[in-house]
């Protein structure tokens, strides 16, 4: 049947050619996404890439201008009430009520999710335990730390045990420890069968959590795959070269033109793809010697998702634009 995703049982979220503009600015240029049930998909992109807009459309907060989106098998436009009953949303800013206590916040949400009083009480107790807020349950939320607010926020979106959870930048602004505990909670949710769509600007977060990563930039999907596949696209080995003197940096860049991935003039670092390892390395060093550029240090490493990201979005890399065009074709 056209229009309706055929395999609702398998896919929790199906998005086809999603488009959205605000006034004259086109924010989404046709996004396609499929999220398998029980998996974690990370929408990875810089600020303004369209991540939040996508989440807002999927959680029925915004109507799309074009394309189709199904959440739990329901059309986000025509069956918005059913969609809302299937999802939990944790937005970018903690959506908690500062004057109420943690317990009151959860009870309020439970009642608005239309649970019976008994169920509401039980879920509130369970969730306070699950997000480690039992001790703070009776304190007004405005006295909570940033990490505690986020955990409460997450708990609030889990009240009705929704099968699908949207997390918009769940760890932005958190300290490293709160971040780790948030990661553990997200993993735990997925292990227990929830489907999670999260957005992030942090590659390590996508790397750590996601089964599938979709990289978006300027409202387009520019790459997708699991973390390993994406990393292998920029080569299996990277070499970071630190050039001895600032004045030589331009010279060095010219010398390794064909191999260069990223360049940082301030730090005098050139990152180079060395797919066939030592052979490439030897050649590069030869080029640099010919150009009479001295190398201060040299490190070989596996590419990180940061490299992938910078490479794909074209920030600083020569090859990136070529790559991007290739993908669009």
């Amino acid at each position: 049947m056209d229009g309706n995703p055929s395999n609702v049982a398998e896919n929790a979220i199906v998005v086809r050619n999603l488009q959205k503009s605000f006034k004259d600015v086109e924010v989404l240029h046709g996004i396609d996404l499929t999220v398998r049930r029980g998996s974690i998909l990370a929408l990875l992109g810089p600020n303004g890439a369209g991540k939040t807009t996508t989440i807002r459309i999927l959680s029925t907060l915004l109507p799309p201008d074009g394309g189709e989106a199904y959440v739990n098998g329901y059309d986000v436009v025509k069956q918005d009430c059913d969609v809302r009953a299937s999802i939990g949303l944790t937005g970018q800013f903690a959506a908690v009520d500062g004057y109420l206590t943690g317990e009151e916040n959860l009870m309020m949400l439970a009642r608005l999710y239309r649970l019976s009083h008994a169920d509401a009480k039980r879920r509130t107790r369970e969730l306070l335990e699950q997000v480690d807020l039992v001790d703070a349950a009776r304190r007004p939320v405005k006295t909570y730390s940033g990490g505690m607010k986020r955990r409460l926020d997450l708990a609030m979106s889990l009240i009705a045990a929704p099968p699908i959870i949207f997390l918009d930048e769940p760890t932005t602004g958190l300290d490293p420890r709160s971040r780790l505990s948030m990661w553990a909670m997200i993993k735990n949710l997925a292990n227990n069968g929830a489907t999670i769509l999260l957005t992030t600007q942090y590659m390590d977060e996508a790397d750590h959590l996601a089964d599938w990563i979709v990289v978006i930039d300027e409202g387009r999907v520019i790459a997708e795959g699991d973390a390993n596949t994406l990393k292998s696209r920029v080569g299996s080995e990277h070499v970071d070269l630190i050039i001895s003197r600032n004045s030589n940096f331009m010279l060095a860049q010219q010398a390794v033109d064909g191999y260069q991935l990223q360049a940082s003039a301030e730090e005098r670092i050139l990152t180079i793809a060395a797919n066939d390892g030592a052979v490439t390395l030897k050649r590069i060093l030869q080029h640099l010697e010919d150009a009479e550029v001295e190398v201060e240090s040299l490190t070989m490493r596996r590419p990180t998702l940061d490299d992938v990201f910078l490479f794909l979005t074209g920030d600083g890399a020569n090859g990136a634009h070529r790559e991007k065009e290739e993908i669009e074709r």
Partner: peptide, 15 residues
């Protein structure tokens, strides 16, 4: 943090 089960709790049904 406890690792209590998320979806294994008794299902909650809206009234």
């Amino acid at each position: 943090m406890t690792t209590s089960e998320y979806l294994l709790v008794a299902p909650v049904q809206p009234e």
